[in-house]
Amino acid sequence: MKILNESVVLTGYLVAAILFILALKGLSSPRKARRANRLGATGAVIAIAAYVLGHDIRNGAWIALAVVAGAAIAVPAARRVHMTQMPQLVAAFNGVGGGAAALVAVVEFTHGADAWAGSVIAFTVFIGGLSLTGSFITFGKLQGIITSRAVVFPGLGVLLGVLTLAAIATAVAMVITGNLLYAAALLGIGLVIGVLFVLPIGGADVPIVISLLNAFTGLAVAGSGVMLSNVLLLIAGTLVGASGTILTISMATAMGRSVTGIVFGAFRRARKSG
């Protein structure tokens, strides 16, 4: 439906961006926090309504179906979850968000991309994929599906190093050739690295890593904003990436830990024991 013109849509994005900032800000006061969360949700509704009312949209029925199906899963999950299981549910939600950002990037890549857009897409595909599996491993750890202890094996550090180099090489090949298969390969490498990155993290450090992966998804969303030339995605993603980084550091500090110690500590131990 093309009811709203472009400047109204952009104003809607501006309002949404302000509401997101107020939402994050309001969360630092227990009294205002619940209202702040509502402001955030209102911002999201305004932004999406503005886009939908301002553009001709194909596949409307499919999109509506996917939204209804997603909400039908998310609302009961969020409503029924036990208080002690909330952190892992947030991790799961974060993971699917990262997966969504990666898929959006892959789809955008099918339209072709120059070197700049291609690089942003490669970044988003990789970080989104990493966030997806990393978050699900943290979910599994907190939920007791997999052991919450640090899982390390000899050569893990080397394997991660090799995979990281492979990811860079694949990203370069993807940007140069424009071949979708490289994008799929990069997504695959991101998914594997997500698993290997979180496995060595144990017990009490897991919530901190959830926060770190949350910030990663924020960066992936910011990347989507750049490739889609959408200023709201850029602002919201960058906000979450930045505030999530600070939050991760404060959480670690509150527990007397350091973020680098958590992320790289396990590898150091692995090297000593292996």
Binding site: L24, G218, N230, G237
Partner: peptide, 20 residues
């Protein structure tokens, strides 16, 4: 953390853009 997680869910807008 949960609020920040919800806010990056605005990737829904990006998903609707490409799906549309």
């Amino acid at each position: 953390m949960s609020e920040a997680n919800a806010i990056h869910g605005i990737i829904l807008l990006g998903a609707i853009m490409v799906a549309g």
